[in-house]
């Protein structure tokens, strides 16, 4: 356990000094602020709506940026360390391989949480005061967004480890991470949309599509946040289109990323156990 915490602490140090992580966290903050300022611009409306709209658009931002930051943190965790010879040192010391991975996971999720909390926390506070100190329920929405974003990020951190443990070169691991991001966040949704359009009879839309939607942790995350704030006004995305017809509604949708995270950690530990550095 001591070793796990030591590894986590060092990963936090490295992560917080990594300029790519700092840069992407700043991008997250800037985008969040832009969305907040755009969202609270139409002043004629009811105050709570403003913050709610902001939370809705921030959750869409999360779907793109949080997995990216997560993969940025994790793709180098194993392949890169073998390349540079530091994993050999860690594995030569009395820490189990599962412990090494767990320590990295805790550290990376912590760094990700710092990025998400600072980005959305600042944006949320700005929205709160810009709308003249709206109600606390809206702030709760921001809290929910932060918590679910961290879970989403943790999932992609763990998935990134599978990529990093399966290849020998950092470059290959990076390419694999980009492919995972592109597939999960962009291509998957496009394919589902295509499926919806193609199958007019409704079988796909009713019995297959909802499952495919929650199967993807990024879509499950969007589903959860949409159902939580329950806004029809922000529709136009897949989550809004299906509404309550999904197999896992509300907070249960978050089961998908959690199961993914646990499974991915298990698989990457298994692969790491076979690695011969």
């Amino acid at each position: 356990m001591n070793g796990v915490l030591t590894i986590a602490a060092t990963e936090i140090r490295i992560g917080l000094r990594n300029r790519w992580i700092i840069l992407s966290s700043l991008i997250l903050l800037v985008f969040a602020l832009i969305l907040v300022l755009l969202g609270s611009a139409p002043t004629g409306e009811v105050k709570t709506d403003a913050v709610t709209v902001v939370v809705a658009s921030l959750s869409t931002l999360s779907v793109y940026l949080v997995p990216l930051i997560a993969l940025l943190l994790s793709f180098d965790a194993i392949a890169g360390e073998i390349d540079r010879g530091t994993l050999q040192l860690v594995l030569a010391s009395p820490v189990s391989r599962g412990g090494v991975l767990l320590g990295k996971f805790l550290g990376h999720v912590f760094v990700l949480s710092v990025a998400v909390i600072s980005g959305y926390g600042i944006a949320g506070l700005v929205a709160f005061y810009a709308s003249g100190g709206g109600d606390l329920a809206a702030l709760l929405g921001v809290g929910r967004l932060i918590a679910s974003s961290i879970v989403l990020g943790a999932t992609f951190v763990a998935i990134g480890y599978i990529a990093s443990a399966s290849v020998r070169q950092t470059g290959t691991a990076a390419a694999l991470a980009v492919a995972i991001w592109l597939f999960a966040v962009v291509l998957y949704d496009l394919a589902l949309l295509g499926g919806l359009l193609a199958s007019r009879d409704g079988v796909f839309a009713h019995s297959i599509f909802p499952w495919l939607l929650v199967f993807n942790p990024a879509d499950a995350f969007r589903l959860y946040n949409m159902s939580a704030i329950n806004v029809a006004a922000t529709g136009g995305n897949l989550g809004g289109a299906v509404g309550s017809a999904t197999p896992l509604s509300g907070v249960w949708a978050m089961f998908s990323p959690v199961i993914w995270a646990v499974t991915a950690l298990g698989i990457s530990t298994m692969i790491l156990n076979r690695v011969r550095p």
Binding site: T10, R13, I14, R17, N18, R84, G85, T86, Q88, L89, A92
Partner: peptide, 13 residues
């Protein structure tokens, strides 16, 4: 205790 042939420690530390 081991010292590999080539090791590159994290530059930020």
């Amino acid at each position: 205790s081991y010292l590999p042939e080539q090791v590159m420690f994290p530059k930020m530390l």
